[in-house]
Structure formats: C-alpha cells, structure tokens
Design a protein around this nucleic acid. Structure first.
Length: 869
RNA sequence: ACCCGGUUAGGAAAAUUGGUAAAUCCGACUGCCUUAGAAGCAGUAUUCUCUCGGUUCGAGUCCGAGACCGGGUACCA
C-alpha cells in the first residue's frame, strides 16, 4: 500500500530543493528565446491572503509552462516598499518605517510567496526603499531633469490646519482629516514638482494601437483618461476694457451664435478684474465658498448649478452681441482656459444654468434647419445651422471648421486640441519615499545634485509625529548642504517622490539588478524587454500602466532603452470575493470587510497545490472568483485521486524507480493503438487529447486555466474508468469497491502497462505548471526523473499525435429542418454522399419525412446531415 | 447621466470559425464497503441558454430593442 497524499510532507521539501538547484534562474543573453513574465509587485503591507494569491498563481503558471516550452524565462519578484502605511505604522507603533517594511517583506517572501510554490528568480529581487534601488530612481529623475521633463509650479494641496501638514488624497475622508474628523481640509497653494508627461500625450495615445495584447477596455480607459478633444479657442473682448480678452475653449465653435453668457471659473484671475463695484461682495463671497466646497461637494452626484454675475460684459466676435460674464464653479480652472461660453440651447449644463438664472436660450442648430420653438432640453445632436448669419443652412459639422477658419482670419480665435491629461504632480510632503535629488541655493536657485554625489540617502533619525510639516525638514543635519554649483550653503528639497515613480521602472531594474554604475545596462534591457506577459489588477489600468509607458518612452529618448512600449501583453485578473459577515454580501476579499482567508492555515491543511488549482479552476482569469472552502477541498480530492492512482501503479510495479516499464516515449508519445481493448484505446486517445487541449488552454491566446484543469480531470476520470473495466475483467460483476489496486493493475498486459506509464507521464507533465509540488514528487516516485537532481519543471513540455486525439468513429447527427431526429455511429471523414445515404435510410428519419422529398440536404463534415423538406 | 462588460442546471462554469447545449468542480441524492470517508469507489437527477423581434437549412453564439446585474468616468466645455 502506498502512502497517503500529504502536501505538508512534500511541498516544503521541494521548495527547498528547487531553490538549491537554481532551476528558476534567468540567464542573460541565452540562446533560447526569451520570455519575460512579470507580475505587479506588491506593497509590503504585512500579510497576503488567498485573494492576493490569485495573481501570483496565474503569473507563475504562465512562467512555468513557458519554461517547459523551452523559453529562457525571466520571472522576478520585488517590493513596492515606499509609501504611507509604513509611516502611519511608525506614528502609531513607534516603529521605524524601515524596520516595519523589512519585517513585512521577510514574512511575505518566506512564509507566503515561497510557500505558494512560486518559481521566482530571487536573485533579482528588487526593493524600492533600498538605497541600491532608489539611488537609480534619483538618477533617472536627474536624466529627466536634464531633458527638461521636471519642473516646479504652484499647485493646490490638501492641508490640515490641525496637523499643519499636507495630506495625501487617501488621507482626506469626507473632506476632513483622517486624524481629525472634525477638521475641514483646506486647499492650499504650494510649490510642487511635476513631471512633464504631457510632452508625450500624443505618443501615449497613438501607441495604444500597438498594444494588441492588452484588454480593449484598458486601452479605452487610458484613451478616456488622456481625453483628447478637438475644438477651438475663441476670444471675447470685454466691453468696458477692450484691452482684456476672455479666451474660451470649446469643442462646439459651431454654436457660437447661440452664446448668451460667458462663465469664468472662481479661481480665474480675471474674476477680480472684471467684477464691478456693485457685484464685488457677492462675487467675493461666492469665490470664498467655492474654495471650501471642492472636496466635499465633488462627492454629491447631482449638483444644483450655482453662480453670480460679475457685472461685466463681453462682445461676441461673430455677431457683435453683448453678453454678460458670470462666475460659476461648474467651470474648472484646471481645464482649458478656465472660461467657457454658455450656449444653453446646445449644452445640457448650460441649459440648466440658463434656466435657473433666466438667461436667454437661442437655438442655432436643429434637425431641419428650422426653428423648433420653445426648447425643453438642449439639442446636442448634429443638424443644420440657423440664426447664424452667413453660416445658416450649412451642416453643423461643416460649420465647425468654417467658423474656426473665420475666427482665425478675424484674429478672434484658432483651432485647438486639448487633452484631459495633465502633468504628473510628483511631490509628496512625506518621509517614507525617495528623496528628490535637488538643492535650493540662494544664489543659484534650484540645482541638481551631482550624479557622483548620489544617492541622496533618507536620514534614519527622524521623528514621526505626523504633525508640523514634512519630516525631512525637521532633520537639520540632513537639510543643510552645500550648493553643487557655487559651494555656498544650500537647502535640500524636502519633498519625496510619489511612489508611482518607483514602480514606473522596476521592470527595467529586474533586467540588471546588480548594476552599480547604471540603473540598468542597455544591452540587457534590450535583451529582456519588452515584458512578454504582464499580470496584475485592473485597479492599475490607468495610472501605473500609463506612467510606466511614459517612463519607457522618456528613457528611450534619453538613449537608455530601445523599446517604445514596456508591456506587450497584459492580463488583468479579476478580484477574489467572499461572503462578508459585516455587510451580509459577497464582496472583495479584504481585511476591512472581515472576509479574508489566510494562506498559512490552508497551506498546512490542504497544501499550496490545492489552493493554486482552486484559484485557477473556479473562474476564468479575468472574471471575478468567489473563494469557497468546499471548492478548494474539491481540488484537494482531485490531487488525492491522482496520488492514489499513481501509488497503485507503483505498487503494481508498472512505475517506480526500479520498474522496467518504458519511461520515455519520444517526440510523438506512446502511439501504438493496435491490439488495445476499446477501453484502452479510449485512454490512449484521452492522453493525446489532454496534451493537445492543455497546451492550447495554457497558450497566450487563451490562458484558460479553468478548462485546462477540467481536461486533466477528464484524463484522470478516464484512468479510473480503465481501471474499473480492468477490475471487471473475469471478476463477474460484483468486484471490489476499489477500482484500482494491485488486483486490477496486475491484470494489465505489457502493452497496457506501457500505456499506463505514458498516461501517468503525460498527466504529470501537463499538471506541472499548475500543481508543481505534487507533480514533482510523483515524477520522482515514478522514476521519470533522470536523477535526483532532475526536475519535472525543466522537462520538455509533451507533444501529441494529432490523429490519436479523436476516436475514428463518431455520432453523425441527422436533422430535419434543423431539428435533431436521429443519429448513427459512422467513420470519421465520411463523404457527403455516404452520409446522405446513411441519413436517408435511417428509420426515424424515414418516419419523420413521411414520404416527402428532401428539398435540400446540408452536410457538415464530421458533424451532421440536415434535411430540409 | 455617459462609456464599457455580463446574464447558460441549486452554485461556479464549458461550448476556438453559427452545427448533438451543459465538459469539469461544488452542492443534493442512491448504491457499495468487513480501514464508513472535511479525503474512498460506482452511479443518479436538475434544464433548454434573461425577454421580445430579425437574419439563417440551422442561433447560447450574428444583428436590433428591452429587463436585470457588475465595472469605469463623473460638471473636461
């Protein structure tokens, strides 16, 4: 009797063995084709749960299968280790962020990711909070600075007057400070550092077309985020002050004859200039109120339009009409020119505004070109121009360009393309981030730190109170330095970088992690890049992926890299959910919802292989997956079935290190079907079919892990059916309840023994990427391994014989008028003529046809005959 | 509001190009067992693919309309 399947006994042992053998090491410039497999590296928050494990499992299966397919696989792992939670932990628990982060990393790496049985090349581990890494983050920033991609300007920040510090957006809860729910957060203008991502807007937009391997919706989200809109800028001269012109941006220059007012954003500097004495109080009050509103009111869905008139008027350049200038907070200073022309007849928002304040509504486009009278809503469709002077009668799309031309000729406007994408604010007034390597000198201004003086290290002796401004500013020793330019006293920049910067180039550092002279060697990066398969959460569809694309392009333009796009293929795995006691609903697995399933308990009870199989099996990778303990145990049962079957084969002497049964079946696999029983033939077909199906399912075109596992289960079911049939042989029906066992197996002929060995071999190989521990253990037990140092994970992926993937007979279906009537077993490849004869002589068909003549007969090869009467 | 995506047995899902709907797992049920099982073996059942209309010899699959569910964006001019 063989041993029982006990994952605890085998998993840890093989994990150690793999590490020792170094089989997951990626080799620079190897002759095999390269495959760069990447998973979004985690923030080391301390503990991973089953929900997190999904992405690592998927990425690991891809890596392992590609390795078996003969690729030189780079499958690295690292840590996105800077960030706010470490600082919060420091404030709360008096623990230094570095200590907190490092102990979390150790736990996640050794007790969680390794225990999952992942195949990472740990020699390439990257940690963004280590000097070795952020040295190069700073170096890259200096390269960008040289290129003019880094600049400083004033921008609003969230400011808590109680803490006297800047808050990240996540620290603002319902408009209040996360530490002081009673204190309203204010918007304060401060000088901030920006990265000029807008220099790459068009490339970022255009190259989305190249990303054929990305989910369409991610491309669409990026496209919307970039938000290209084509239109025109039009100038309206202020009536009382002709030297002042208000420039508005509009995508609808064709509606300019319908302008009944102009609106300025409250922050627009023109507001003060244009407000007349009698309107001063009202306008100032309104501006002050809207300053406070911003955060809180953005949450409310339907906002009532508000606004006040400035008392000034402007002239419409097209028709000379005089229209009033208002201030309203539905106009944003940050987009376009901070001024908008109000066309109530053809814009929903303007319609609402005009209705509320009884401003005129003039129709200038309609379906027919005729006035439709009293309007009840804005007409935003295309149509024919009216009330528009010489442009009347044109289609509005035609008028758009004609009117823009007219504006340009008359010095009152021009065509203009606008993007929603803004420059990237990278300043964070925090401690636990990468210091910005710039120095402020009284005489020289902003001066970059010399490359040779990098890295600018984070000082470790900093106090964390969470109050009184940036922690770095309080470290006097660190703050004061000398100017790299003139040598006089200077101050370091106390802002640190947004952590999205750290994660915008980590995939490049993996290519050359040890480099002490450069962020990465160009040749090595060019060998590995682009990433062949990136796997990660949909929550990074916009920012992380867009920033990384920007970095790749900017680094390319710095001459450091050759590729245009970092990630050729992207897989966004769905989230893992579970019923939450707190909300009473099925929700995303998370600590706050109280529905997490820990990894350690499950791994010790049922093993990592069962956890891996369940997360792969329960849903396709992009779909949501509900964690189910019963379901996961089902996978444990499945593995137990494989284990017991193979033990029986070993007990029967069919397999095992000492057994003499053939263990390698060459390129085509075992392919002798002559002399096999019907049941054995089915098994042989099942083997070839499984290899084909799993190969297809694990290919990048499909990544259908769920069906791959289902195919493996079918093969196992077929193996049991074969054993049951064997047990029946000669035992007169009421045989033993165990299908397998020595008695059944020992009845096998030498040919059947070979077939079983082939089946076991094939099954273990195709299961290896998904259940790496069990496959490896049984591989060795069966004697398939060439030596103790050999591994199934570096064994060649099996091939199959196409002709053996199907039975030579199949059920030909007979339909009458598309409805199933009958069927019959016939030879595969039967000709249309033969099939037609068989169909027309079938009893049920004759009966159903009732003597009628077939009008038409449709034949689908190896499937059906459809008789139309 | 707008833009995506989805809806198949009790639950999760399969069905590469229109061609026998329901592979596989969970759950339920039945039988077997001289180790009665969170883990064995063998077997059974459930229903016609959300609704309506169209194209077709033939539609879960393609087209149109609607219902419901999920996601993204959110005054972007």
């Amino acid at each position: 009797m063989g041993t029982q399947y006990n994952p605890q006994q085998i998993e840890e042992q093989w994990q150690a063995e793999w590490e020792e053998l170094g089989i997951y090491k990626a080799i620079d410039n190897d002759t095999r084709p390269k495959f760069y497999s990447l998973v979004m590296f985690p923030y080391p928050s301390g503990d991973l749960h089953m929900g997190h494990m999904r992405v690592y499992t998927i990425s690991d299966v891809i890596s392992r299968q590609r390795r078996m397919m003969g690729f030189n696989v780079l499958n690295p792992m690292g840590w996105d280790a800077f960030g706010l939670p470490a600082e919060n932990a420091a404030i709360k628990r008096k623990l230094h962020p570095e200590a907190w982060t490092k102990s979390n990393i150790k736990h996640m790496r050794d007790a969680q990711l390794k225990k999952l049985g992942t195949s990472y090349d740990w020699q390439r581990e990257v940690n963004t909070c280590e000097v070795d890494y952020y040295h190069w983050t700073q170096w890259i920033l200096l390269k960008f600075y040289e290129k003019g991609l880094v600049y400083r300007k004033s921008a609003p920040v969230n400011w808590c007057p109680q803490c006297e510090t800047v808050l990240a957006n996540e620290q603002v809860e319902n408009g209040a400070c996360w530490r002081h729910p009673e204190t309203q957060v204010e918007q304060k203008m401060m000088a901030q550092w920006f990265l000029k991502i807008t220099a790459y807007t068009e490339q970022l937009l255009k190259d989305l077309d190249q990303l054929k391997g990305w989910p369409e919706r991610v491309c669409l989200m990026q496209k919307n985020w970039i938000g290209k809109s084509e239109g025109a800028e039009l100038q309206f001269t202020v009536e009382s002050k002709p030297n002042i012109k208000i420039t508005v941006f509009t995508t609808r220059p064709d509606t300019v004859f319908g302008v009944s007012y102009i609106v300025l954003a409250p922050e627009n500097p023109l507001v003060a200039e244009l407000t007349t004495a009698e309107n001063k109080d009202a306008v100032e009050k309104y501006v002050a109120e809207s300053k406070l509103k911003s955060e809180l009111d953005r949450m409310t869905t339907e906002k009532d339009k508000s606004g006040v008139p400035t008392g000034s008027f402007v002239v419409n350049p097209f028709n000379g009409e005089i229209v009033p200038v208002w201030v309203a907070d539905y106009v944003l200073m940050g987009y376009g020119t901070g001024a908008v022309m109000g066309v109530p007849a053809h814009d929903d928002r303007d319609f609402a505004f005009a209705s509320k304040f009884q401003l005129p509504i003039r129709e200038v486009i309609s379906e027919s070109g005729q006035s439709t009278g009293q309007m009840k809503a804005a007409y935003t469709e295309n149509g024919i121009m009216l009330n528009s002077g010489s442009f009347n009668g044109l289609s509005n799309t035609e008028a758009k360009s004609k009117m823009t031309e007219w504006a340009a000729e008359n010095q009152s406007g021009n065509a203009r393309v606008l993007y929603r994408l803004r420059d990237w604010l990278i300043s964070r007034q925090r401690y636990w981030g990468c210091p910005i390597p710039l120095v402020h000198c009284e005489s020289c201004g902003v001066v970059p730190v010399k490359e040779s003086d990098l890295p600018v290290e984070l000082p470790l002796d900093v106090e964390f109170t969470g109050e009184g401004g940036s922690p770095l500013g309080k470290s006097q020793k660190w703050l004061h330095t000398s100017c790299p330019n003139c040598g006089k006293d200077a101050r370091r920049e106390t802002d640190t970088m947004d952590t999205f910067i750290d994660s915008s180039w980590y995939y490049l550092r993996y290519c050359d992690v040890q480099n002490k002279k450069l962020a990465f060697d160009k040749a090595k990066a060019d060998y590995w890049m682009p990433v062949d398969q990136y796997v990660g959460g949909i929550e990074h569809a916009i920012l992380h992926l867009l920033y990384s694309r920007f970095f790749t392009k900017a680094l390319r333009d710095c001459g450091l890299l050759s590729c245009d796009e970092p990630f050729s293929n992207l897989l966004s795995q769905g989230m893992v959910t579970k019923f939450s006691q707190i909300s009473g609903r099925i929700e995303k697995m998370s600590k706050s919802r109280g529905n997490v399933v820990g990894t350690t308990d499950f791994f010790t009870k049922f093993g990592a292989d069962s956890a891996r199989l369940f997360t792969l099996f329960a849903a396709p990778p992009e779909a949501e997956l509900e964690w189910s303990e019963e379901g996961a145990i089902g996978q444990f049962r499945f593995l137990g079935r494989i284990w017991r079957y193979i033990q029986d084969l070993i007990d029967a002497g069919i397999l095992g290190k000492e057994s003499s049964t053939k263990k390698d079946f060459g390129e085509k696999g075992y392919d002798k079907s002559e002399g096999l029983s019907a049941q054995a033939k089915l098994l042989l077909q099942s083997c070839h079919k499984t290899i084909k199906a799993v190969s297809d399912d694990l290919s990048p075109e499909r990544y259908a892990f769920n069906t791959a596992i289902a195919r493996c289960m079918e093969l196992v079911n077929q193996l049991y059916a074969f054993a049951a049939a064997k047990a029946q042989e000669g035992s007169n029906g009421n045989g033993s309840s165990e299908a397998t066992g020595n008695s059944a197996m020992s009845k096998c002929s030498p040919q059947e023994r070979e077939l079983l060995a082939f089946a076991a071999r094939s099954l273990l190989l195709v299961m290896a990427p998904m259940a790496p521990h069990l496959s490896e253990e049984l591989w060795h037990q069966c004697g398939f391994a060439a030596s103790a140092k050999d591994s199934i994970h570096v064994t060649k992926w099996p091939s199959y014989t196409a002709s053996l993937t199907e039975a030579d007979e199949f059920e030909l279906v007979f339909q009458i008028n598309g409805k199933n009537v009958s069927k019959a077993m016939v030879k595969r490849g039967i000709s249309e003529q033969e099939a037609r004869e068989v169909a027309l002589s079938d009893d049920k068909v004759i009966k159903k046809m009732d003597g009628k003549d077939p009008r038409k007969v449709i034949f689908v090869k190896d499937r059906l005959v459809n008789i139309v009467v």
